[in-house]
Design a binder for these strands. Structure first.
Lengths: 200, 200, 200, 200
DNA sequence: GATGAATGAGCGTTCATTCAT
DNA sequence: GATGAATGAACGCTCATTCAT
């Protein structure tokens, strides 16, 4: 019986290798070696190289999405929801740097299948943000003149770019807590010093 | 004498092809065909495939960076500088969708040389943002508690992600002007409805 | 104890699969699935893939050869012997289309081992024909100027090619009886209308 | 400009290699080495390995078919036509043993594309035979009770099998002339000694 | 004896790069 | 300078065979 353990071991190895080399530079034999299995064994668990990438995105991101969704769903306050979202997203990326790197790289690929994936599963993740914003607007906590459809992208883009430095070998000057706090401060209240803030 | 025209034609063709297929899926012969030159001719102007990519990033982004730098440098007010930056960046991306796509994709690559490039030339572009923020903080227009080093990334990430929909074939519901306005509103004043905004 | 049943089941399954796909396109797992055994089980009964092919040829053709030999050996008249040979061969092929297909394909392979097989076991089958012809010549029934060594090949080639249409999915216009009759007519008396026939 | 010479060199090399090893055992690098070109060069002239095989069959057999067709078309007498056919076919095979071997092997493959080829181009070759027979029947030279649709197969099968020994390394005891004469004798007048011949 | 997961050698094909014309 | 035919290293994937259970 094909072991789920081996499946996971390959997924994790692939994540690591994709993160280090990128999808196209990663060789199947790299992943196999990392997972300590034979090249052919990979194909007992995945259809092809691309299938491995999609599986990484599906399964690993899927876990995070589920986790965040659950953490948010019973929260009544939009402001707190946003806080939870940022905290969870950033800590998930911090704790899983390989996955973060893969998301950075591969989600931008122009490949048809990647786009398809992005347009299906991933969309729901980004839409979590716009749902939170809409909720906040209904609660009169968030400004009515912000378009959730644009803000959700700006928000995700900001989060994603902010985590990129974590994946570089470079030392980063900011801690997870600082970054979380900064992102929240920025998106809650903007750059402008009050009292001009509300007037825009 | 090698024609500068041919050099540019290849750069533009490469931008188009990279945008459509991504760097790894793009073939030299695709670029050659698009540029209406022979495959071998490419190598009279560039050292190798990767050199083309770097040249695209260098030269095309370089133009935009220079343009924005010039537009900003004599502007005294940080708030206006930020407005110019957003306006210029978004319109440049809108007017050059192929380049925008290439930036999306290739700047995320884990390739050593891409990282190197990103860490050199591109850094100065993103640093424009932090310089503007610092200027604003000195002018007491921007809040003191925002870390420019984080905000610059959040800002660039937001801009970059917001333009991604423009490169997809999909219709987008937001115009260039709307998007510009939304981004500025968001980063100036945040999501919170006043008067809470300034207090955070 | 290895079951003779399982051995035969594998042989029959292999015959079927080889007939459908050819030796090289047939996978061990195809044969295993057809025989409803595990892949590894095959190797309890055969040394390797090639051994299966040889066994198919040996055992299945062997049965037919034996059967024809026995049917012929007590027959005194060469003309009748030839009739028996044709009848038996064609009906055997008609009744075992998979085997016929395998003979068609695999007996022509240039593989050293196939050639070896062909040169050993199979030779005796074709030699049955030349023996019949020689007998007929001794009995003054057959013409003296026909070289049995050439005629045996022509004869076998004709029989073999005639059955090829049976293995195709196509409907064939000729029944087994018609075909038998035609082959006999052709090889007994040739194409020429008498009385020119005998003069050649 | 891709040279027709190189195309032909590859075709001839492939014919030689296919003849020696069979299609499946032949490696592209074998063919390339035989043709003294790089592996990749093969793919400038052919789409894939299978395309090479089909091209060998198409082009090389095509030449022979054309040659025989032309030699026959102005011949009024069916008996002479048959003689020309046999002579030309056998000498063509004798002069091109590699091709003969490939025809032997590959034309029997169960591969869908091979079948397709066989059912298209090759059919017309075999049908030459039945057309000759029909002509002969109209001329009252050939017996009316022979079914051309069966006889054509028997005839081709006989010719093809007779040439197989030429491709083996073995010495053969019969010359081209003898074989031609024997085949003609056999198919003209059959095995039976006259006067029984015409009576069947 | 039977299983089927695991192995890894082997090969068809691609494509960046070269170089003779 | 320009061409594009030729090159050959590289790699994804297959599948006959093995072996631990």
């Amino acid at each position: 019986m094909k072991s789920i353990d081996k499946h996971n071991k390959i997924i994790l190895s692939a994540t690591k290798v994709f993160a280090k080399k990128g999808f196209f530079n990663a060789r199947i034999s790299d992943i196999a070696k990392e997972a300590k299995v034979a090249d052919g064994t990979i194909y007992l668990y995945f259809n092809n190289k691309f299938d491995i990438l999609i599986s990484v995105l599906e399964e690993e991101i899927g876990k995070i999405i589920e986790q965040i969704k659950r953490a948010i769903e019973n929260e009544p306050d939009a402001k707190t929801m946003l806080e939870i979202f940022v905290t969870k997203h950033l800590s998930a990326m911090k704790n899983n740097k390989h996955l973060a790197e893969v998301i950075h790289m591969e989600l931008r690929q122009s490949d048809r299948l990647v786009k398809e994936y992005r347009n299906n599963t991933f969309r729901s993740y980004i839409n979590l943000i716009s749902e939170i914003i809409q909720r906040g607007q209904e609660q009169k906590i968030f400004r009515q003149d912000i378009a959730p459809g644009i803000a959700k992208r700006a928000f995700f883009g900001a989060l994603d770019e902010v985590t990129r430095v974590w994946t570089d070998a470079n030392v980063t000057h900011y801690t997870l807590e600082e970054t979380t706090e900064q992102i929240l401060a920025l998106f809650r209240s903007g750059l402008l010093a009050s009292p001009a803030a509300g007037k825009n």
